[in-house]
Amino acid sequence: MTETIKTGQMQMIPINLIDVLNPRERNKRVFEEIVTNIQTIGLKKPITVTPRPATDGTDRYLLVCGEGRMKAFHALGEATIPALVIEVSDENAFIMSLTENIARRHYRPLKLLAGIQQLHEQGYDKKVIAQKTGLCVEYVHGILTLLMKGEERLLVAVGKGKIPLNAALSIVGAGDDDQAIQAALQEAYETGKLRGKQLIQARRVIERRQTLGPSVAKGTPRKAQDVTTASLVRVYQKEVDRQKLVVKKAQLTQQRLLFVVSALRELFADENFSTLLRAEGLDSLPKYLAERVLSGGRTI
């Protein structure tokens, strides 16, 4: 499925002759910034199009890259826009458009990840998708796994960077068993897959997933179950496991603080080091540390 892309030529193309292959919603503030930049300094990079004659034989073009720039030009009242005209197939045009979107920070993650699924459905295997999009094979495999299982809620969290992909896969691998999910979370914490805010975010995503289902668009609250002794035990055990994680995190933080306090005490005992800090204007400490490092009282 490889294709040699011919070197394109720069042309002034009428905007009304350009069709958008992969339209996407755009943040209003970001779009206004694009319009302002083009109005102030002009178009720094031309859009990319490929010829696609209409059924009546008239010349038309398919937009490959530069939807925001084209819309900004249109908003400024321009009828034509500088464009690099290349010869590519519909599939390669889609891939080029998807690749540009992947490079953007503000692209909607679920729509972007669905694009990876579309490439897969068109017959591209994980390795080829990775090569064409610049993603690693493991990432593509993980995304396709979540997509095939309908885990939209986890996909959005991964796409926004709230939780890492390997942690999301561990959650999915645990199924719907609450204890297995908690065990997966604990293992992810202990192995360093989830740290700090990511652990909190993962818990929130799991709670929404359990309540609203894995789908974002069609999630509906699950029917409440009758309170039984077994359900109360499960809730209690869940809270116990959560508290254990909190305690473990607190103990780790305490150990690190003790190490920092001990190290700083030894450093400040060295007069040469203290003199150097004063000379560089770095002789102050946060109050919390100063009370423990510079006083003779207890450290914690």
Score class of each variant (00 low, 15 high):
R60I: 03
I13R: 01
L62C: 12
Q131Y: 06
G150M: 07
I18F: 13
T80K: 12
Y124F: 14
R60Q: 12
T40V: 07
N27I: 14
N37A: 15
A103T: 12
R29C: 04
V30P: 00
Y139W: 12
P51E: 13
I116T: 07
V49Y: 05
Q122T: 14
I81S: 00
L62H: 05
L84W: 06
L112Y: 04
P14E: 04
M96E: 02
K28W: 15
V64P: 01
E33P: 02
I47Y: 07
N27C: 09
I38P: 03
L135A: 00
P51K: 07
N22M: 11
R108D: 07
I81H: 03
F94G: 15
M96V: 04
L21Y: 07
E32L: 13
R60N: 10
I95C: 04
I18V: 15
E138K: 11
A114N: 15
G150S: 08
I18S: 00
L110S: 00
Y107C: 03
I86V: 15
T50E: 11
N92Q: 12
A75M: 07
K45R: 08
G115W: 00
L119A: 05
V64S: 02
A93V: 06
G123K: 15
K132D: 00
R69E: 06
E32Y: 14
H106S: 10
G142V: 05
M70C: 02
K132Y: 03
I86N: 03
L43P: 03
D59T: 11
I95N: 02
